[in-house]
Design a protein around this nucleic acid. Structure first.
Length: 191
DNA sequence: TGCCCGATTAACT
DNA sequence: GTTAATCGGGCAA
């Protein structure tokens, strides 16, 4: 049986946690799949929500690691993050894509889609498929409805520049499972 | 207070 | 390739 990820797992640098999450399994109320794409955001990073200090929206990021930070993006979509590092350092990992493995019929209904490849291939899509909204901001990751299981098989992790950010665009803090069909965008291949 | 922008997506031309 | 949907944060006044 795979091991559940504990708060200890998240109490490390985002740059260690983020690549370690690739291949882990994320379930929300029994629905979800294998994590294939994430991005790291550090409080010293101009692209991070926590960069300019605590606000009502980002307050969870300034709390202890091992909790979910859910925010509204572009006024429309929800995006899911895992808070990392010692309490107060305000760093988090954005979950960008899953390979769906559990609850596909539910996800298809929520997304109005038949194609598995597009169910969770993007931060907003993933939250819609799993039914995650702002109501779930601040929930613990080691308790229901969340379930996080450590990866069992070795995966090939690849890094690249983050998507959709306009600051610190040169930082290769996007991590993904190499050649996964479920990435929101492909990683640039070596020429 | 008012204005601009953003860790996005889908539906256009 | 472009654009609309839609709302909180940050900053200027």
């Amino acid at each position: 049986m795979p091991k559940r990820l504990t708060n200890r797992f998240f109490a490390r640098s985002v740059h260690e946690v983020a690549p370690d999450l690739i291949g882990a399994t994320l379930l929300f109320a029994g629905v979800g799949g294998r994590v294939v794409e994430v991005e790291a955001y550090h409080h010293t990073d101009p692209a991070a929500h926590s960069y300019r200090g605590p606000t009502e929206r980002n307050s969870v990021m300034f709390g202890p690691p091992g909790y979910a930070y859910v925010y509204r993006s572009y006024g429309i979509h929800w995006c899911l993050n895992f808070v990392c590092e010692p309490e107060g350092s305000a760093s988090a990992v954005l979950i960008r894509a899953l390979a769906p493995t559990a609850g596909l019929p539910v996800m298809r209904r929520r997304r109005g889609l038949a194609e598995a490849r597009l169910l969770c291939s993007g931060p907003g899509r993933l939250c819609e498929a799993l039914g995650i909204t702002g109501r779930h901001n601040g929930l613990a990751l080691d308790a229901a409805p969340f379930a996080l299981l450590a990866r069992q098989d070795a995966v090939e992790v690849i890094a690249g520049p983050r998507i959709g950010v306009t600051k610190a665009v040169d930082k290769p803090w996007r991590y993904g499972e190499k050649d996964s069909r479920f990435l929101s965008k492909p990683f640039k291949r070596k020429a």
